[in-house]
């Protein structure tokens, strides 16, 4: 990531996570489409993000049920 500026990288993260408004999104997408280096950086960001998606995990049903029982108890109390 030697030639992409810090600002451009930060734009790519915000864009990848849908944090940019319409105007910025358009500007960033044009940059991605028009600059192979930026396109390559963006692809790498997305690859890492996709990899992180595989780590999403859930609590056990037991712990959720314990919380619901406790909530019911608090509501009564």
């Amino acid at each position: 990531m030697d030639h992409t500026t810090t600002r451009e990288m930060q734009d790519l993260f915000r864009y990848a996570y849908n944090e940019t408004g319409l105007k910025d999104s358009d500007r960033i997408q044009r940059k991605i489409d028009g600059d192979p280096l930026v396109a390559s950086e963006y692809r790498e960001v997305i690859e890492v993000i996709n990899k992180l998606d595989e780590g999403i995990c859930m609590p056990s049903d037991e712990v959720v049920n314990r919380i619901l029982d406790k909530a019911a108890e608090i509501s009564k109390g």
């Binding site: 990531m1 810090t6 990288m9 930060q10 993260f13 915000r14 790498e44 960001v45 690859e47 890492v48 996709n50 990899k51 998606d53 595989e54």
Partner: peptide, 24 residues
Amino acid sequence: ALGRMHYAIIKMREMIQKEKIPLR
């Protein structure tokens, strides 16, 4: 916050390449 994300992405990308972790 953005800077920390930047370094984290660089490092994770390096690890994925170095350890040949399969990508989706």
